[in-house]
């Protein structure tokens, strides 16, 4: 087994990983119910997919120019994807996009309400589904959704 064979095995593995994550991200963009959930799928596409394909390029071509540029692409993807997703989600929230009706917690709304002084420390805070109020975040009570949110 020569070194070219080993490089091709690694390249095939990383290319398959990258192709898988690229397509799965696109499927998630179609299938997920909400813009916030779709941002989650898009981040998979842009970080893991690009990383896999760039590693495949590194292992197959192997020149210094390709290695440096591919590493720069990976670094840029790792920096740019969270920043873009965060800004887009915050802008959509500011624009008043309603989250999915089965979402467990909406902490930005809670923080805004807390800063506006609408609720005291022990009062039930506003949720995405206002039909089920729950205790404060640092006080996990009997409500399982409160415990999940306190852990997260």
């Amino acid at each position: 087994m020569t070194s070219a064979t080993v490089n091709d095995i690694l390249s095939i593995f990383f290319a398959l990983c990258g192709i898988f994550f690229m397509f799965v991200g696109a499927v998630g963009i179609v299938r997920f119910p909400d813009a916030y959930n779709r941002l989650h799928a898009a981040s998979k596409c842009s970080t893991l997919g690009v990383m896999g394909l760039a590693l495949a390029a590194i292992f197959h071509v192997g020149a210094l120019a390709v290695t440096t540029k591919a590493l720069m692409t990976i670094l840029f993807a790792l920096v740019a994807a969270p920043v873009g997703s965060h800004m887009l989600a915050k802008a959509a929230h500011l624009d008043g996009l309603k989250p999915w009706d089965r979402q467990l917690s909406d902490e930005l709304t809670q923080d805004k309400e807390r800063q506006a002084g609408k609720s005291s420390a022990n009062a039930p805070r506003g949720m995405a589904a206002p039909s089920q109020p729950r205790p404060a975040r640092r006080d996990p009570g009997s409500d399982p959704t409160a415990r999940i949110s306190a852990v997260v």
Binding site: M22, A42, D95
Partner: peptide
Amino acid sequence: HLADRVLSGDTISWQ
């Protein structure tokens, strides 16, 4: 929503 369209455009650029 407009955010969905922007998000899909971003994903197209990454593709």
